[in-house]
Amino acid sequence: MNWEEKFMLLAARARAEEIPHVNVAPEVLTLLTSGRPEPLTVAENLWMWLAAGASAVAVPAAVVAVSAYNASMGPLREIVNSISWAM
């Protein structure tokens, strides 16, 4: 008997093995009810991608807006500083 026949015979014996009994239903349901995410629907998926896209645009836009605001505030700040003694 060569190695392959021996392997095949062992595999055939292994198929007759008894598998341990499991009952995972309580654990699975507990996992699913304790904060695991629910399956996303198609609509939720669309909203998720839309939100991700909007964030990707919004963050750079906010950075540009803050820089522009700071730049435009320069002359105004000078005026405010020059009359601050009156306030």
């Binding site: 021996k6 392997f7 015979l9 014996r13 292994a14 007759a16 093995e17």
Partner: peptide, 21 residues
């Protein structure tokens, strides 16, 4: 350790065979 003859392998305990493989 498992002899290379058909009878020995066929009489092997299923659990032992599965564990070995």
């Amino acid at each position: 350790q498992i002899a290379d003859d058909r009878n020995t392998v066929e009489q092997l305990d299923a659990n032992q065979a599965a564990s070995l493989l």
